[in-house]
Amino acid sequence: MAASNVLAATLKSLHRPGKPIIFTNVYDVLSARAVAALPSCKALATASYAVARANGTEDDDMDAQTNLRAVLPIAKVAAEFNKPFTVDIQDAYGEKLEEDVNKDTQKFYSQQEAVERIRRTLKVAESLGVKDFVVNARCDVLVHGGQLSEVLTRGKAYLAAGATSVFVWGGSQRGVSRDEVATMVKEFDGRLNVSMKLSPDGLNASQLSEIGVSRISIGPAIQFIAMDTYAKEAEKILTSV
């Protein structure tokens, strides 16, 4: 196996239904180093929302150059710890990368177009010696008010095109229900990525594992906690005299 494909193959092998890879998404060198040093950390992943905030912009306004410039130092941390690394490419930047909603127009690509975009991504990766490149194909049907039936149809097509998993996001308000997760796990043979809420009313990692997902992420949740703690500690110092 080519050296450039070893970590990709490792990452792909960590997507196991019922024993999922869990990402506590990082956003800069400090957060990456803190997580990568943990023996329990199997791989690193960014959250584009958190990366954008750490670089003085918002997710919807962050361009590809800003994202890639920000994640290169994180990639060096991943290489230092010899751990796989996956990057959240927010909204796929229109024609440059692969996703099912056009960031600029907010219109869905047809299923056929979305499938071809996934195939092109994998073809480019293979040409660079990374035949096991992991594509976590995002499907935004639910957050745009669509039906689960379309999610299932699209998701199956994305997986057939070579995606390792399907990330179905319901948005911060709607979310995705337990029944919907269970249905998608069944229809996708477990190849589902769920964004886990760090709250008592959300499904925890153990519950999601029992349902059978293969990938769990948390987005910018820890960044929110970290910055809240940072502010509180600063306030203690600033008001101490």
Rank of each mutant, 00 (worst) to 15 (best):
M1E: 12
A2K: 10
A3T: 10
S4M: 10
S4A: 12
N5K: 13
N5C: 04
V6D: 10
A9L: 08
A9S: 05
T10Q: 14
L11V: 15
L11Y: 11
R16I: 10
G18K: 02
G18I: 02
F23W: 03
T24M: 06
T24H: 05
N25S: 10
N25K: 06
N25Y: 03
V26L: 01
Y27V: 05
R33Y: 13
A34L: 15
V35N: 02
A37Q: 03
A37I: 05
P39K: 09
A43C: 12
A43W: 03
L44K: 02
A45V: 10
T46Q: 11
A47E: 02
S48T: 04
Y49E: 05
A50W: 01
V51K: 09
A54C: 09
N55E: 15
N55S: 15
G56T: 14
E58F: 02
D63C: 04
Q65V: 10
L68R: 11
R69H: 03
V71Q: 12
I74T: 05
I74R: 01
K76M: 11
A79C: 06
P84E: 15
F85P: 02
V87E: 12
D88R: 04
D88K: 02
Q90A: 14
D91H: 08
G94Q: 07
G94F: 13
L97F: 15
L97H: 04
E98F: 08
E98W: 01
E99F: 04
D104N: 14
K107W: 04
K107M: 12
F108S: 13
Y109S: 03
Y109K: 13
Y109P: 03
S110W: 15
S110V: 14
Q112H: 13
E113W: 03
E113K: 14
V115S: 05
I118E: 01
R119H: 04
R120I: 07
K123M: 08
V124L: 09
V124F: 08
S127M: 06
L128S: 09
G129R: 10
D132C: 04
F133G: 15
V134M: 13
N136D: 12
V141K: 02
L142A: 00
L142H: 00
V143S: 10
H144V: 11
G145I: 01
G146A: 07
Q147L: 09
L148E: 07
E150G: 07
L152D: 00
G155S: 06
A160H: 08
A161M: 11
A161T: 04
A163I: 11
T164Q: 08
F167L: 05
F167I: 10
W169V: 06
G170V: 04
G171P: 09
S172K: 14
S172Q: 02
Q173A: 13
G175S: 03
S177N: 05
V181N: 01
F188Y: 10
D189F: 12
D189T: 14
D189L: 12
G190M: 10
R191V: 04
R191G: 15
L192P: 02
V194C: 14
S195V: 12
D201E: 15
A205Q: 04
Q207T: 02
L208T: 00
S209W: 03
G212R: 05
R215C: 09
I216E: 00
I216A: 01
S217D: 01
A221G: 00
D228R: 08
Y230I: 14
A231I: 05
A231Q: 13
K232W: 14
K236Q: 11
I237Y: 09
T239P: 13
V241M: 11
